[in-house]
């Protein structure tokens, strides 16, 4: 347990990003929902360019952890810093910080009354007040990149789940964030659409985007993640490289969990 909570993982398992600067740092983060202690003394450091996969049973606090990082859920105690700055509590400063942290939700959450293109353009235009033509050019390029460039003028409800999620990724990218949080981005998708979204995420990872990904997609974790974090009951129970974690889990909880998701 103690070595699992260690902020700096063993150097032999660290690919290049570990030498980079810490981008997101959580220290002693605690959060309750009433009597439920959802986040218990969470210590976690995510370095620039790193891809961290968070895995764990349902209800273990993975979503809450993600949402705490951009303060969609306020925390009770502890500290979160992003690029060296403490997470502001409210107002303009909080909004500015959120604009630097992308978020991709399980249920896509595209704005239903706006076209795909408008969804992607909204943030840069309204938050950053960038010029329309600049934003539109970037938005179209991003939509092309995630493979939905020809859907730009449709509404979200006209797209398949996989397409919607790729638009949501483009929307997050349009803000040119320092880090993107993915909360089970493929869990709401039909099986045949999972890969197109994972492929998009893989290419992002390959380009050096810093990513926190809550997912149970082992293939993605193995091919794209630098580190796997295993959560259970609001704690980080184990933290390791994907190969080590999946091949040789150290804790009983992780072994038990993996046996459930691997053999069905």
């Amino acid at each position: 347990m103690t070595e699992a909570l260690d902020k700096t993982p063993p150097p032999d398992k660290t690919p290049s990003p570990r030498t980079a600067a810490p981008l997101v740092v959580l220290s002693k983060v605690n959060k309750h929902f009433g009597a439920l202690h959802v986040l218990q003394d969470i210590d976690l450091t995510i370095h620039e360019g790193e891809v961290v996969v968070v895995i764990g049973p349902s209800g273990s606090g993975k979503s809450t952890l993600c949402r705490a990082i951009n303060r969609l859920e306020p925390i009770d105690s502890g500290a979160i810093t992003i690029d060296g700055n403490a997470l502001p509590q409210e107002g303009r400063a909080l909004a500015r910080l959120r604009s630097e942290v992308g978020m991709v939700f399980q249920s896509f959450n595209l704005f239903a009354h706006k076209t795909v293109l408008q969804n992607v353009m909204l943030g840069p235009q309204k938050v950053r007040r960038e010029a329309r033509d600049v934003v539109e050019k970037r938005a179209r390029a991003l939509l092309d990149r995630v493979g939905v460039g020809n859907q730009a003028d449709k509404y979200p409800s006209q797209l398949s789940g996989g397409q919607q999620q790729r638009v949501a990724i483009a929307r997050a990218l349009a803000m040119q964030p320092k880090v993107i949080l993915f909360d089970e981005p493929t869990s709401a998708l039909d099986p045949e659409m999972v890969n197109e979204v994972l492929e998009t995420m893989r290419s992002l990872a390959a380009e050096g985007m810093t990513m926190v990904v809550v997912t149970h997609e082992m293939g993605f974790a193995r091919s794209a993640a630098n580190r796997v974090i295993f959560m259970a009951d609001g704690r980080i129970v184990e933290e390791n490289t994907p190969d080590e974690f999946f091949g040789n889990p150290r804790s009983d909880r992780a072994r038990d969990f993996l046996s459930k998701i691997l053999h069905h």
């Binding site: 604009s99 992308g102 978020m103 939700f105 959450n109 704005f111 803000m175």
Partner: peptide
Amino acid sequence: EAAYALGL
């Protein structure tokens, strides 16, 4: 939530 997450 999606709107707040964008920084609005």
